[in-house]
Design a protein around this nucleic acid. Structure first.
Length: 548
RNA sequence: GCGCCCGUAGCUCAGGUGGAUAGAGCAGCAGCCUUCUAAGCUGUUGGUCGCAGGUUCGAAUCCUGCCGGGCGCACCA
């Protein structure tokens, strides 16, 4: 999969020949500035010190010692402080086209994961309300990260964890109960810190309709079950509208039923990192670098229950025991304090779970802008921008794209007006348009793009600079996917898409395909560009329309 | 107070784990339609990379200290 393999090896041989004792980890990269060629290496700069010669002299020696396969490189230059720049022969560039068409929907895939199982947990919203825009960002990120891992050879499980046990659920149940009683003409006595949203009233009404025998909502447990069930249904509908599918829905309550929580507790005690103080049971997390110890079981006066910490650890032990070589958790940055704690909990078990397990992708908050003003999100007040509203307003593709186009750890400003606009200013529209235009060529030609074959076509006629640019960009795609998967950063793919779309638009505008002497070769190029645009979009869960 | 993240063009953001003159989009300015979608294309203006030190051939990138913003520091999840 490594790019420019022949160059890489030739450089390594040349380095040995000029007397380099050890081969440093040198780079062979595509320079930003095309004047610096198609591939450049810093090898001479790295060798200079050890050889006691100026970098440019080393570069000169290297170039002399270089033995390259015939017809591979057009020109070699030494530039700047001692970079060696390679200009590939034109014929090399066009080689990407048969590769793209042969691989088709698989072009860009790799096998770094070698089929190992990975778990990606995301959204994991408590069933206490509708999904808000922050969950939307998480859904888009988590799903894209899962796809990136699949594309690089991991066997991925998408997982959703419900905290259906804790105090928040109780508060939810009491809030619904209060609204039920309000329906009976009694003043609503909402619990302290309860839920005020309009959706609570809706659930109360539905409860009464569904439970004629308990119109007072006296049965708190029945109210709780009903409310959780209703909200899960709502959340599932939102996720479905967003096109996200989970393989596993994991309920916190199941960890108690299966005895995993108890088992984890026993293991921690057995490993010797626990103690009792003030009637509570503590884990000595300071043994592992935490700034204070953490309570695992509250003292009796506080209810004597486990804190969320223990089931969290039990849950990740469960992931480990299910055989996941990697567990990746996508969460809002407001949860970052759990990162070290969960990891420490796993270390304290002393069962040889790697220190970096699980991995975390934390994302910052989302600000929604509309008409130049910020839309405030307040759960308490019940004024609430939900994922569903956003999807209904701007469409699923735009929502996904916008959530993915920024790095997770920068704040995201979601411009609703931009997301809806049908112009080049809107990146998702711009990219999809490029795909539609490529498709349009085949529609007019009455040909199937999938049926285009490069065999017997003289690709050597693709000599325009815009065509060379496109060929290089197409060749870069697999490395972009690999890098995005490595860093768990889907925004690299949206960035790539915008660049490829720009080149495609420029080429389309400047040259014609049909009826030109270069028609056959350009059809191959258009089919390949269309394929890669589609692959990148589909990888992100975004559609690639044939016309707009 | 402590911990994590962020600070790059007027705006929104990239910057491949230390490399060449710091990039892109938008906005601004100037242009381009007998054609497969002008729903687009071309050119151009714009920078103390928050500040100050340090590490080295070389720093937006690594280290230290400050300034500014966000988040978190529960026997809540």
């Amino acid at each position: 999969m490594k790019a420019h393999e022949p160059l890489f090896e030739a450089l390594a041989r040349a380095a040995r020949q000029i007397g380099a004792s050890a081969l440093p980890e040198f780079r062979l990269e595509t320079p930003r500035d095309p004047a610096h060629g198609d591939a450049a290496t810093n090898l001479a700069l790295l060798l200079a010190k050890g050889l006691g010669k100026p970098p440019r002299a080393v570069a000169d020696q290297l170039v002399r010692a270089l033995e390259l396969p015939a017809g591979y490189v057009e020109k070699v230059e030494i530039a700047g402080p001692g970079f060696i720049n390679f200009f590939l022969a034109e014929a090399q560039l066009a080689r990407v086209l048969p590769a793209v068409l042969a691989a088709g929907e698989g072009y860009g895939r790799g096998d770094a994961g070698r089929g190992r199982p990975a778990n990606v947990e995301f959204v994991s919203a408590n069933p206490t309300g509708p999904l808000h825009v922050g969950h939307g960002r998480q859904a888009a990120l988590g799903d894209a990260i899962a796809s990136l891992l699949e594309w690089t050879g991991w066997r991925v499980t998408r997982e959703f964890y419900y905290n259906d046990g804790g105090a928040q659920i109780l508060s939810l149940a009491r809030s619904v109960q209060a609204r039920i009683q309000e329906l009976r003409g009694r003043p609503a006595a909402l619990p302290e810190g309860g839920y005020h949203g309009e959706y609570i009233r809706d659930i109360a009404e539905r409860y009464v309709a569904a439970h004629p025998g308990d119109a007072e909502g006296a049965d708190l447990e029945a109210v709780r079950r009903f409310a959780v069930q209703e909200l899960r249904k709502e959340q599932d509908a939102d996720l479905q509208a967003f096109g996200v599918k989970f393989d596993v829905y994991f309920l916190e309550s199941s960890l108690y039923g299966s005895g995993k929580v108890e088992q984890t507790l026993r293991r921690l005690v057995a490993a010797g990192h626990t103690y009792e103080k003030d009637g509570a049971l503590w884990l000595k997390t300071t043994d592992f670098g935490d700034d204070k110890d953490r309570v695992m079981r509250k003292r009796a006066e506080k209810g004597g229950e486990y804190t969320y910490f223990l089931p969290d650890v039990a849950y990740h032990v469960d992931k480990w025991e299910r055989g996941f070589a990697r567990a990746i958790n996508v969460q809002g940055a407001d949860h970052h304090s759990t990162v070290t704690r969960v990891r420490i909990g796993l270390q304290a078990l002393e069962m040889s779970i790697p220190a970096g397990y699980p991995e975390y992708v934390l994302h910052q908050m989302v600000t929604v802008m509309k008409g130049g003003a910020e839309m405030k999100i307040s759960k308490r007040a019940g004024s609430y921008m939900t994922v569903r509203e956003l999807v209904e307003e701007v469409g699923r593709d735009a929502v996904r794209y916008f959530f993915l186009m920024r790095r997770g750890d920068s704040h995201l400003v979601f411009d609703v007006d931009l997301a809806k606009s049908q112009t080049e200013e809107n990146p998702v529209f711009y990219v999809q348009m490029a795909h539609a235009r490529m498709s349009g060529i085949f529609r007019v030609a009455a040909r199937e793009p999938a049926a285009v074959r490069p065999e017997g076509v003289d690709l050597g006629v693709l000599v325009q600079p815009e065509e060379a640019d496109l060929l290089k960009e197409l060749a870069a795609f697999p490395a972009i996917v690999a890098r995005a998967a490595e860093t768990l950063e889907p925004h690299r793919v949206t960035g790539y898409l915008e660049g490829l779309a720009r080149l495609a638009h420029a080429w389309y505008h400047k040259y014609r395909v049909l009826g030109e002497p270069e028609e056959a070769a350009r059809l191959v190029l258009a089919a390949a560009v269309r394929q890669v645009l589609a692959n990148a979009l589909h990888l992100l869960g975004i559609s690639a329309p044939d016309r707009m």
